[in-house]
Design a protein around this nucleic acid. Structure first.
Lengths: 357, 357
DNA sequence: CTGAAAGCGCTTACAG
DNA sequence: CTGAAAGCGCTTACAG
């Protein structure tokens, strides 16, 4: 039945339905919106005419009148290949799925400098492209985030803690994830642990670093910046960082990488250096990307609930659009995934006795 | 200057600009659209008033009048985690980048059964959400693709050959990629090659299989289905397929995997079986996902120009929307990327002499 | 070169 | 419970 409109020269409009059903356009509009003021009888009659004519409301007209677009934007960070990054992909999956369940469509935008400078992040709301946005890959240098405000320019930050108090967010519990990883490494007897991080301006990653250092300090393990290196979130960066750390501290027995990509790079580098993982050096990642389970050796890491974070971010944003006034501050738990890239520290017995000192 | 509109209770409209500039709304509309019928003088005057008031046209009203939405949809396949898949991510990157350059926005949709059954793939055009779509991950069973038609329901298929003649497409040259890989494997002396494919209903993958078999046949190498196994495009599937093939043919010296994910799974499985790659068995993939260069050993594969495919698909679709009438049939070249997962066949000398028979 | 008016296809008070 | 009318904010002939 719907098929016939496909060939229609002109889409059938509310007016067409109204005259075919011998009612006013207002009535048709009301049955369309399930307004209870319409009697069951007319509702059914008008509905059947709509079905017969294959009527489909023009959403531009609907939105122009109603002020709601029912579309959300996903604002991606300005990174080389953000869409091909499984980390962001997981969050996007969650956003898309939940949005669609809640009757929203999603639009993709990228926060390139030109985009931000032109205030396009607000323009897409002002010009009625979208009702609000979910923002990924934020960091402390993104001062434009201050522009968003619940009532006027609704937005929620996904998987990070915003630098501005008034902003809504939904994030994985990075700090707890880092602690889980450190407990495990310490249990295995590792005391000489190199840290490969990135995003010095990213709050969630600052928390990973802080948790890492705090655990070391709590265990009276001496630590300074020579044990840390920036891996720029990439495989290449992770490889380079691993090389630097090994050169500085050949005695290290473990490498803590703040994301899986850097961990893969690090493992790749170790292999080139003919250092065996995990026999000589253990490596841990962070994120639990799907393919991390299939590298050699399979990566021990922390699972981040990224789909859930995306879904929740979309859901809370939509609640805001529908009038929610309480701030959104959600932190979702993580869990450790032990695989094959970790083992007892090669110097464990030695260190353990020394530790009793 | 634009900032002040942020606090305005009501967005400034064309009418506001018109009265502030003492001209008609028609005139303001024309300067907005750079209509040459407006004199330079009034254009400049009106323009400055627009800037002063921070005027931003309501795109819903614009589109309602003009009939164009200037937004495209990306239709994703109904796969578990399509967005987190680097393969699709690359294509999406290309689409987003080019669309944005050409003044289009992009919306995300997923071709779930319910979506297709409800004809939503046409509805999003009829209801004026988008002007057309770029479709990823198609296969021969997707009969709904027949619904698309250049004039009425514009769409272009990305990285596959459609089953319907009237459809536009932009694709990588999978057949040529497969041939490049086979030439290389044969050069290395491999004669006992297992094939891990998937998507028996996907034209591009049928072509990979066909090219694979044709090369074998041209080299007088006997081959039957026992040398082939379905890996379902996943790491898990690739691992299982590798296991099956090795059990059936312990003598095999190479595994040809139709995508990188299955290749990673296969390598992972070989490692568990304590079969060394590439010394005992060579493994090749297909796609050249970024992380394939960082697994151990680094994967030899065919590079697919996926960003370019996405960009071109978007560009051609937009040309169609702007009146292009010639069909779109673009095939973009691939290239071989040799890394560390391939080596001379362990039985090469033996086979080479036998081959002279 | 510019303006007055109709129209795009809806929704929403306001009557009755 | 339903209708007539105004309005959302633009664009596009049609006049002049």
């Amino acid at each position: 039945m719907t098929g016939q409109s496909a060939l229609a020269a002109r889409q059938v409009s509310l007016r067409d339905v109204a005259s075919a059903a011998s009612v006013s356009v207002a009535t048709v509009s009301m049955v369309l919106n399930n307004n209870p003021r319409i009697s069951r009888a007319t509702h059914a009659r008008v509905q059947s005419v709509m079905d017969k004519l294959g009527y489909q409301p023009n959403r531009l007209a609907q939105s122009l009148s109603s002020k709601y677009t029912n579309v959300l934007a996903i604002l991606m960070p300005d990174l080389r290949n953000a869409f091909a990054d499984a980390y962001f992909g997981e969050v996007i999956s969650g956003i898309c799925e939940r949005s669609s369940q809640l009757g929203y469509k999603v639009m993709l935008e990228q926060a390139k400098p030109a985009f931000i400078d032109a205030k396009k992040h607000l323009e897409i709301i002002d010009r009625r492209f979208v009702d609000g946005l979910v923002i990924l890959g934020t960091d402390e240098t993104h001062t434009y985030l201050a522009d968003f405000e619940p009532g006027v320019y609704p937005a929620v930050i996904a998987d990070n803690l915003p630098a501005f108090d008034h902003l809504d967010y939904v994030t994985s519990d990075h700090a707890s994830g880092a602690r889980q990883l450190m407990s495990y490494l310490l249990q295995l007897g590792h005391r000489k642990i190199g840290l490969i991080t990135a995003g010095s301006q990213i709050r969630s990653h600052q928390m990973i670093r802080d948790s890492f250092r705090a655990r070391l300090q709590a265990s009276d393990i001496q630590h300074d910046e020579t044990w840390e290196c920036d891996g720029m979130f990439t495989e290449e960066g992770g490889a380079q960082a691993a090389l630097d750390l090994i050169n500085r501290h050949p005695e290290l027995t473990a490498l803590f990488c703040a994301n899986d990509k850097m961990a893969l790079g690090a493992m790749h580098q170790l292999r080139r250096l003919r250092i065996e993982v995990p026999r000589q050096v253990s490596v841990v990642g962070f994120d639990d990307l799907h393919h991390a389970a299939f590298v050699n050796p399979a990566l021990t890491t922390v699972h981040l609930p990224l789909m859930q974070v995306g879904a929740l971010a979309a859901e809370r944003l939509i609640e805001r659009l529908r009038g929610r006034t309480e701030p959104v501050r959600e932190v979702v738990g993580t869990h450790l995934v032990v695989r094959d890239s970790t083992a007892i520290a090669r110097d464990a017995s030695h260190l353990l006795s020394e530790g009793a000192d």
